[in-house]
Every structure is written in C-alpha cells, then in structure tokens.
C-alpha cells in the first residue's frame, strides 16, 4: 500500500509543480544577489545568506533557510491535508477502504508518502541550491568556510553538516505533516485541513515571539525549526537539535494516534 501511495503522489503533476515553486524563491534570491552584490550582513536575514557571495557551496543552507519559515510548511500542509480529505472529496476514499489492508495501514501509508514528499522536497531544494550556488557564486576548490563560532570548517565538514541539516529540516516538517494529516481525517475538505495546519503554525510562530508565552515556548511546534543552524557552531550545539527531534516525534505520535482514533471509527460515505 505504501508503494501505491508513493507512486500516486509522485505521479501527480501538482506535486512537482509544488516542488518547482518552492525552488523558485531561492533561485530568485540568488539571481538578485548576483545582480546587486548586496548580501545581508552575517547574522541578519536568512541564515548563511551573507556568506554565499564568497562561498557558493553554502547556498543550499541559505535556500533551506529561505523556504523553511513559510513556503516549505505550506507545501507540506497542502500535501498532507490532501491525503485523506482529498480522497474523500474526490469520492475515492470508500474504494480505497474496500481493499483488505484496513484503515490503519492506509493512514500509515499516507504518512510515509508525506514523509517521502518532505524528504524529496528538502533534498531537491538543497540540490538546486548547490547547483545555483556553485554556478552563480564564487567557489574555490579548496575553499574553507568560517563557521558561526569563528572556526574554520573544511569542505568535508560543510558537506557532512549540510547533510545533517537536510535530515533535521525534514524531521522538523513532520509535525506540520501530522497536524495536516489529523485535520484531513476530520473533514472532507483538503483546503480546510491545510488551513487548519497553517493556522496552528501561524499561532505557534506568533506565540514564540511573546515573552508572556515563554512557559509554553519549548512545546511549540515551530520552536526548534531554525536549530539546523546549530550544526555550524563549534562544537555542534546538540541541545536544541535533540529537543527539536523529540518534540516532532511527540507531535507525530500524538496526532497520528488521534488521526488513527478518529479515522478508524469514522463513517466513510464518500
């Protein structure tokens, strides 16, 4: 069933249109940087964007930082919100459930498909960022980069930490996917499920800026999203990275459980 869902997702043109649109913004930013030579100061603007003028191999990280706050979660919410509600709206859900696999397996297959979408999307954003960065910006074969702590990172270290960052960003999106998937079991409207997940994210981002909400800040789904930057400190700051992974795991477990509790007992008529 997982294979079926994966094939279905990646054969849809809109999946690739979504990924293409996601890449448009970092590419536009890169072109503007090249044309104007105006990068933000280090520590300002999206992470690592300031460094790409002198080292294009860092652009994959800048590209991830550009899409992470808004565009990537929107794409994930759209795909995950569509997973069950889209089938219900299209009248195909009851046919899917006619297969002997059962509702729980369908739910898991949908989640795996969404996770695969997130991973493929993040990897493509990073890959396009690498191609764009090394094409448009200066790259020296033995270039070394200065990390946030002022220590020198070799190209191998940058590559290894970039892979870790890609993995972390993928995990960071699982909470969004879980929210959208849960909402997708509550309604027959994929738009409503997507908007529900986005409302949670906007609320989380807003609360994170308020001192009055500091007591609940460690539990907000967006709290640790930017912690992929911590891979480029020396020594690596694992504290927020591990908390971010743990928090996403909790959201996935709880929301998938709620989705399972709701979906396996729901009257499916469409």
């Amino acid at each position: 069933m997982i294979g079926v869902e994966l094939r279905k997702l990646f054969r849809r043109p809109r999946t690739w249109v979504t990924i293409a649109l996601l890449n448009a913004l970092p590419v536009l930013v890169a072109v503007l940087l090249v044309l104007t030579d105006l990068a933000p100061r280090p520590g300002e603007g999206p992470a690592f964007l300031s460094a790409v003028l002198t080292n294009g191999t860092l652009f994959p990280l800048a590209a991830l930082a550009i899409v992470l706050p808004l565009f990537l979660p929107i794409a994930v919410a759209v795909v995950a919100g569509d997973s069950i509600a889209g089938e219900a709206q299209g009248g195909t859900l009851r046919y899917l459930l006619a297969r002997p696999a059962g509702r729980t397996r369908l739910l898991v297959a949908k989640l795996v498909a969404v996770i695969a979408f997130v991973l493929v999307t993040v990897v493509i954003v990073a890959a396009v960022g690498y191609v764009v960065g090394t094409t448009l910006f200066d790259v020296q074969p033995l270039a070394t980069s200065t990390g946030l702590s002022g220590t020198v990172l070799t190209p191998e270290q940058v590559a290894g930490r970039t892979l870790l960052a890609i993995g972390y960003v993928t995990i960071s999106m699982l909470g969004v996917a879980a929210f959208a998937l849960f909402f997708s079991t509550l309604t027959d409207s994929p738009q409503l499920a997507t908007l529900g997940a986005l409302a949670v994210l906007i609320g989380s981002s807003l609360l994170f800026t308020l001192d009055a909400a500091s007591a609940i800040a460690p539990y907000l789904p967006t709290r640790y999203w930017l912690s992929f930057v911590d891979f480029f400190r020396d020594p690596v700051l694992w504290r927020d990275v591990t908390r971010g992974i743990g928090l996403q795991a909790v959201y996935v477990v709880v929301l998938l459980g709620a989705a399972w509790a709701n979906f396996t007992t729901k009257d499916v008529t469409s």
Partner: peptide
C-alpha cells in the same frame, strides 16, 4: 548564541579574544 549568529569571548592568560560573527 542567537538564532542565526553568535558572539564568543575566549579568555587566555594575556586577555580576551572576542569573535563577532555578525561583523
């Protein structure tokens, strides 16, 4: 430590080095 940068102070026997990533 900030979200996108850091400022480090390193103390040795002769004084301090202060590293400012932003600058």
């Amino acid at each position: 430590v900030t979200a996108t940068g850091e400022t480090g102070t390193h103390r040795d026997t002769d004084g301090t080095w202060t590293w400012d990533y932003a600058d």
